[in-house]
């Protein structure tokens, strides 16, 4: 019974492994985005300032800012990244989590 349940629950995300479905979903998502962008025509907007009066402001802002964050962090990485034992034995980064606390059980199904 327990096995059955785990088998069923395994199915929740099975679609991820199917490239056709994912492609379909991404396409659907892009359509949704376009729909959201266009929907600016159809409702009464409540801009707080002058800039967010722009058509599709939130979509554009979100897109640009997200991209900016990714690239800015990549730049930060050049500056800030160090090896894991930079702080030596005085930081937890370089050590394994002690096993006594854990319950490292593997799932029986391969």
């Amino acid at each position: 019974m327990k096995n059955k349940e785990t088998n069923r629950s395994k199915n929740i995300y099975e679609w991820i492994e199917n490239p056709r479905i994912t492609r379909f979903l991404i396409l659907g998502f892009i359509i949704i985005c376009v729909g959201l962008f266009v929907s600016d025509f159809f409702y009464v907007r409540h801009p707080y300032f002058s800039i967010d009066k722009l058509f599709g402001f939130y979509g554009i802002y979100g897109f640009i800012m997200f991209t900016l964050i990714i690239f800015a962090s990549k730049a930060l990485r050049l500056l800030a990244m160090r090896t894991e034992n930079f702080y030596g034995s005085k930081a937890v980064d370089s050590e394994e989590y002690p096993n006594e606390e854990l319950d490292l059980e593997k799932k029986d199904v391969s």
Partner: peptide, 24 residues
């Protein structure tokens, strides 16, 4: 709608960046 626009376009950006393999 504004919130969805913001989030969905951000996710769109993620998908594109992931597709271009540019994620950190």
């Amino acid at each position: 709608i504004n919130q969805l626009q913001l989030l969905c376009f951000a996710i769109l950006s993620f998908i594109i960046i992931k597709w271009l393999n540019l994620l950190p």
